[in-house]
């Protein structure tokens, strides 16, 4: 194939643009990592590139701060939120996908997914306050369910839509009830989708700041809230903040790598055009 000079130039510009984009994406991570391994005394010095590698920030944060507790809280909250979401969301998503008369319900799920947290936080705060659940992990789980359940249900509707109906017909003829057909045949088939939805829901809960900020106290504080409190103009906390940020970010990046290809199907859903 003959490639003209003009085409080559365009190609070159394109590759350069992608290269630039990669640098723009990676540089903040790189700089934060550098900051985390600088000796604390050199924190916040943009001119310093050469220094003795120091794990002091890491050991401070991991051994001598509330961050391990915050990680536990975040993990616990995200995990419980996802489990409840799957238990409630999967059967409902299956029903929405298979039975007639649920078109409106699909849109309700979408609407719930789009609900701004600003409108729910006020009543949730007051309700949890009355129930004495402020500064409890279960209170945060309640709040996180309001956005994780709709997302997971919406994802799963799309995945169930792709499973041929003949499969559960076959299972029912093979001697099973509809519900047995659902959990013995259909659920195993959508297991990759379930996994992707669970991971995505976990990430959403793990990443939340707004609800956690307002509903937690010292005992139930999640990692994002803890990170936010690191920035004090008083001390040299930058290195520790960098460590906390990396701890919050790295697991999510690893998890999300595995679900990228499922995300599209999930976000787009199926059967519903805009």
């Amino acid at each position: 194939m003959i490639v003209s000079f003009e085409n080559r130039l365009l190609q070159f510009i394109g590759i350069m643009a992608i290269f630039m984009a990669i640098i723009v994406v990676l540089f903040p991570f790189f700089w934060i990592f550098l900051e985390s391994v600088k000796p604390p005394s050199l924190g916040g010095r943009p001119d310093i590139w050469r220094f003795e590698l120091s794990w002091e920030n890491w050991s401070e944060v991991l051994l001598n701060s509330s961050v391990p507790l915050n990680i536990m809280n975040s993990f616990f909250i995200a995990f419980i939120t996802v489990v409840i979401s799957l238990i409630c969301g999967a059967p409902a998503a299956y029903a929405f996908s298979r039975f007639r008369g649920f078109q409106g319900a699909r849109y309700s799920i979408l609407a719930a997914e789009m609900m701004p947290p600003a409108i729910l936080i006020l009543p949730l705060f007051l309700i949890l306050y009355k129930l004495e659940l402020i500064d409890s992990r279960i209170g945060v789980v309640t709040a996180h369910l309001t956005f994780v359940i709709p997302v997971i249900t919406w994802f799963l509707i799309g995945f169930f839509d792709e499973v041929p109906k003949d499969l559960e017909d076959q299972a029912m003829i093979d001697g099973y009830t509809r519900f047995q057909a659902f959990y013995k045949v259909i659920l195993p088939v959508v297991r990759p989708g379930l996994g992707a939805a669970a991971v995505f829901g976990f990430v959403l809960s793990w990443n939340d700041l707004f609800y956690s900020l307002l509903l937690t106290g010292a005992g139930s504080r999640t990692l994002p809230v803890a990170i936010a409190s690191f920035w004090t103009f008083r001390g040299i906390e930058l290195g520790k903040m960098a460590v906390a940020i990396l701890i919050a970010v790295i697991p999510v990046l690893i998890l999300s790598y595995f679900i990228q290809k499922h995300l599209i199907k999930g976000i787009g859903g199926s059967g519903v055009k805009y």
């Binding site: 990430v203 990443n207 700041l209 994002p224 990170i227 920035w231 940020i245 970010v249 999510v252 990046l253």
Partner: peptide
């Protein structure tokens, strides 16, 4: 995929 508060900081 990462938490917006981390991005902000």
């Amino acid at each position: 995929f990462i938490t917006p508060i981390a991005v902000g900081l």
